[in-house]
């Protein structure tokens, strides 16, 4: 099942839910499907492990990453590049906005209100039930509420990103899937897709899911590990 997605896509969620890893891999997935893709790193909250870290790899694939000017790359300052409003006004076939965590991270979207007004946008909440505060449906819906208030936007769907990084088991994937499926039913939010890391994919029965699956080739790794090379293969 293909992840049928284009236009302006905004990725939100709680701290550490995996927004950046999902955004990067979604960008790669759509690029491989032949779309023209741009991604903006709008994480103005957390200075570590941001999508700007994968910039070089993505650039090789022809995916442009919009980041703050070079001299501010490592700052923990709330710098919103004016280029972002421009990329919303003249969107690529897929324009991905990778937001910072929680309602605080989504605040930035309110500042982009003018640019976003009247545009068709998709807002997806990334959920990892193995994270604190989103291990219950109530927790996820609380964060949904807070993000919607802060961003002045409605969330349209859920991305299931159940994982314990290197220690994720096949069972964890299915448990996480059941969790987001239930969350989708309860909230009425579309389950857009779930993620599975490359190393687990061979052990997973894709037919188990009613939604598409996004392959995760991990890019945000600590210095003692290697990220998976994003060779330009097409699916």
């Amino acid at each position: 099942m293909e992840i049928d997605l284009d236009g302006i896509v905004i990725i939100v969620g709680n701290y550490g839910s995996g927004k950046t890893e999902v955004s990067i891999n979604l960008a790669v997935n759509r690029k491989r499907a032949g779309l023209e893709v741009r991604i903006a790193d709008l994480d103005l909250v957390n200075p570590y492990f941001r999508s700007r870290e994968a910039k070089a790899q993505l650039a090789e694939l022809g995916i442009e990453v919009v980041v703050p000017p070079m001299q501010y790359m490592q700052a923990d300052l709330p710098i919103l590049s004016p280029v972002v409003a421009g990329m919303i006004r003249q969107p690529s076939q897929l324009t991905l906005l990778d937001m910072g965590g929680n309602d605080i991270g989504a605040n930035v979207l309110a500042a982009l209100g003018d640019a976003l007004r009247g545009r068709k946008i998709h807002v997806f909440q990334v959920v990892n039930p193995f994270r604190p505060f989103t291990d219950t449906a109530e927790g996820c819906l609380k964060i949904r509420n807070e993000i919607e208030k802060a961003s002045r936007l409605f969330i349209n769907g859920i991305i299931g990103n159940a994982n314990l990084i290197d220690e994720t088991s096949v069972e964890d994937i299915y448990t996480g899937y059941d969790f987001v499926l239930e969350l989708s039913k309860r909230s009425g939010l579309l389950l857009k897709f779930v993620t599975v890391a490359a190393e687990l994919m061979p052990k997973i029965n894709i037919k188990h899911f009613i939604c598409p699956v996004l392959l995760i080739e991990r890019q945000l790794v600590p210095p003692w590990k290697k990220s998976i090379p994003l060779a330009s293969k097409t699916e």
Binding site: Y15, F130, R131, P132, L164, I165
Partner: peptide
């Protein structure tokens, strides 16, 4: 069971 946490949270 296990939880995925940032060092600071943990």
């Amino acid at each position: 069971g296990k939880t995925l946490m940032k060092g600071n949270e943990a």
